[in-house]
Every structure is written in C-alpha cells, then in structure tokens.
Design a binder for these strands. Structure first.
Ligand code: FES
Ligand code: FES
Lengths: 151, 151
DNA sequence: ATTAATCTTGACAAAATTACTCGGACATAT
DNA sequence: ATATGTCCGAGTAATTTTGTCAAGATTAAT
C-alpha cells in the first residue's frame, strides 16, 4: 500500500510548478534542483503529466513547463492516477479495467472491503487540489520550499 | 497503492478460518484447497499471524489452526498490519517508525496529504471485523466459499 | 544561420521487492 | 512406530521500481 517515487516525486514536482508559477515556463532543471530530483527522472514523470493535459510544455531555449489549468482545478488524484494508474488496493476493483475482474466478483466478501478502501482513498485525494497545497504551505511556512523531504 | 498477495491471501485465509471454525482445528491443507493457495505459501503467512496472537496452532496429527479470539474481535486491519506492516502511503508517516521521518516533516505539505490517506485507509480496515465478513457472506451467498476470486 | 537551451523519446540496467518453493526439524494422535 | 500435521530458514525466479543515458526535435537568442 505504498506510493512509488513516480507518484511522490510527481506530486512534489507539480506542487513546485504551481508554487513557482509566474506566467513564465519553468525548467525541469529548476524543479529538480529545488526538490532534489534528477532531471533525467523528472523527464520521465512530466511526459505522462503532459499527455494527461495537466501541464503544457514550451519547447526550445527559455522553454519549460506551465500548469495547463489553474492550480485549483488540478487535484492530487489527477496527478497520482496519471503516474500510478488507478488507485486501487487490488486490480479487480479498478473501474476502468474490466479485464482483471474475478470470476466470482458478485459474491466476494473481500471485494466489499477493497471497494471501501478504494473509495476512501480516492475521496481524499480527489478533494485536495494544488491550490490547497499552496494555501497550506503559505500558512505553515512562508519561506521554505520543502527541499529535505524525501517523499 | 496495491496490497501484496501476503495481505490478500492472509485475509482470505483468516476469513476461511473464521467461516469454517467449529471448535476443531483447521488444517492449512483444507484452507489452501478451498481458497486456492499453496500450503507452502500459507505456512509463511500463518506464522506471523500466530505470533501476532490472531490464531492459535495445534501441532501434530489432527492439528491445525483456530482463531485466537472471537471473529468479532479480529479486524481486517489486524490482519493486514501483521502481514504487510504499517498501512501507510509513505514510510515517513508511519507512527511506529520514527526512523523514516523526513528532516522537514514539520513544514511538509505532502505530509498532510499522506496522513489523510493513511488515516482514511486505517479507519476503513479497522472498522471491519471477520464477523462482519461472515455476515456479509451469509447475506450474499449461503453456499459459495469464494474459491475463484484471485485476491 | 548558428548556437545554445530545452523538451521528447525510447532503450537500457541496477536494485529492490514479491511471490513463491523446498527441505528438514519438530510434535502429537492413532 | 507411523502418519499427519505444524514450524523454520534458506533459496530463487519473476516482477517491479528507480533510475540513467543517448540521440533527436524544437525554438529563443545572437
Ligand atoms: S477478489 Fe476480485 S472479486 Fe473477489
Ligand atoms: S515527505 Fe516525509 S515529511 Fe515531507
């Protein structure tokens, strides 16, 4: 039941992008330095985020990335689902994916539990936006840009 | 954010044990056949469950396992924590384990999210007991013993 | 036009974790 | 004694994670 570095670093990167956005595109280099993530790895994370329509890229010199939508319209769930796939404790309760369904799913007592876990997690992460994180950050600490957090 | 087979099979096994308990000890062999889990692997799962005080073993011929407590006093959380460790999305929010704490945990916006995820999952699984699963099962299907569910 | 900066893509690989299997020791009912 | 179970630790194949790397495409600045 752990998130992988994809989800965690991706969330950090998106938060960094939201926090430092001033109209100009932000380089992966800058994000990587602030958040302690290698640019090489960031490239791998930002690509699906772009394809999911969460960020826009500006190519060429002085290029970079900007949020594709207001921070208040990007949820933590959007980011995690993009980078980790459906947020489910077992594959057979993923809504998208009928392929992993079990044969006796209609009379499975475990399934009831897994659906509850799935729903509770998804409710939490869908209720938090990048703007919420920014608000939290401003309230907690005006200067620090969370560099020494590994996750 | 997936459970491993340890947690899933362990839950199945404990449910099987609770459902089929009639005072006599139940062999891993029987559980394995009903739930489609190899006895070899089951041995590995039942061992920590015994050490955690959730089941009692009866060694020797005609031996087996019985629940150490009433089904109504064993939660899904007990089982999952025993087999998977602390239920947390990232190590730094595990209560037991101060070792994985981040250096700036006091001003980390991600942490707030991870704590919420942690709490919501733990609330769900702590609120469900083996007895609840049995009740669900009896209501859904009186005969079937969920054999073809992989999880 | 050239150059330098930056994104884009796909391949590759080391490390860690998962998901088991196996062999043998031990305990007990018959 | 023997058959039937649990108990324990080692070992291992497969998978996933966590990155690195190189070559190419695009564009701003000069
Ligand atoms: S575990 Fe998939 S439905 Fe039972
Ligand atoms: S991620 Fe561990 S506290 Fe910030």
């Amino acid at each position: 039941m752990k998130l992988t570095t994809k989800g965690r670093y991706g969330l950090k990167a998106m938060f960094d992008l939201a926090l430092n956005s001033n109209g100009e595109p932000i380089k992966l280099n800058a994000i990587g330095e602030r958040q302690g993530i290698s640019v090489n790895y960031l490239e791998q994370l930002i690509s699906p985020l772009r394809k999911a329509g969460l960020v826009k890229s500006v190519r060429g010199a002085q290029g970079g990335y900007i949020l594709a939508k207001p921070a208040s319209e990007i949820t933590v769930r959007d980011i995690l689902v993009t980078l980790e796939g459906p947020i489910v404790p077992v594959d057979c309760v993923s809504e998208d994916d009928d392929e992993n369904l079990c044969t006796h799913s209609d009379c499975c007592v475990s399934r009831i539990i897994y659906e509850k876990i799935r729903d509770s997690i998804n409710e939490v992460v869908a209720s938090i936006t990048l703007q919420d994180m920014i608000d939290d950050h401003k309230q907690i600490n005006a200067t620090n840009i969370q560099v020494n957090c590994k996750n």
